[in-house]
């Protein structure tokens, strides 16, 4: 059986959705309450890492593929850069040209909300990628070590 025991698998299946919702809340309300793109991104990444620890690599990659994670990583970084370039329209780099909205509302404060979302995507996918690389590396090197001994 791959992964950990049945109890861990069931509980982690139940919990992963809530962890992702909590991470999304931390990201979306980052400009009104403590939190933000970095913390929320790490929380979302830890949800996928929990999935990988409990179920093994295949289940986690079926939820978020390796190629999709690479694309999301680069897309998040590029989106943040584009938000910076959008300020050039108004005058200078990183100028807050989007609509401000109303104070203390979710859709307010111009570019801070989209920048938070972009950073969250970038941090989450890159941390998931590096952890999956560490996990896969161990399995492959162990297998090659055993095969080397057999030979």
């Amino acid at each position: 059986m791959k992964g950990l025991s049945l109890i861990v698998k069931t509980i982690s299946d139940f919990v992963v959705a809530f962890i992702i919702i909590f991470g999304a809340y931390i990201v979306l309300y980052g400009h009104l309450t403590p939190g933000g793109g970095f913390a929320g991104g790490v929380i979302i990444a830890s949800a996928f890492i929990l999935l990988m620890l409990a179920h093994g690599r295949e289940v986690a990659f079926s939820k978020l593929g390796e190629r999709a994670a690479h694309i999301l990583d680069s897309a998040g970084a590029l989106a943040f850069l584009l938000i910076g370039w959008a300020g050039v329209v108004g005058g200078y780099f990183f100028m807050n040209v989007f609509g401000r909205g109303e104070q203390f509302r979710l859709l307010s404060s111009g570019m801070i909300l989209p920048a938070n979302i972009a950073i969250a995507f970038k941090v989450a996918s890159s941390l998931f990628l590096v952890f999956s690389a560490l996990a896969i590396f161990r399995r492959r090197s162990f297998r090659s070590m055993i095969e080397g001994e057999l030979r």
């Binding site: 933000g36 970095f38 790490v42 941090v123 890159s126 941390l127 590096v130 952890f131 690389a133 560490l134 590396f137 161990r138």
Partner: peptide, 20 residues
């Protein structure tokens, strides 16, 4: 410090990869 913490995590991942 908020940026410094996340950079620390990235650098740690790089160092652990080198150790492995």
């Amino acid at each position: 410090v908020l940026t410094s913490i996340v950079i620390g995590l990235g650098v740690l991942a790089l160092m652990v990869a080198m150790c492995i």
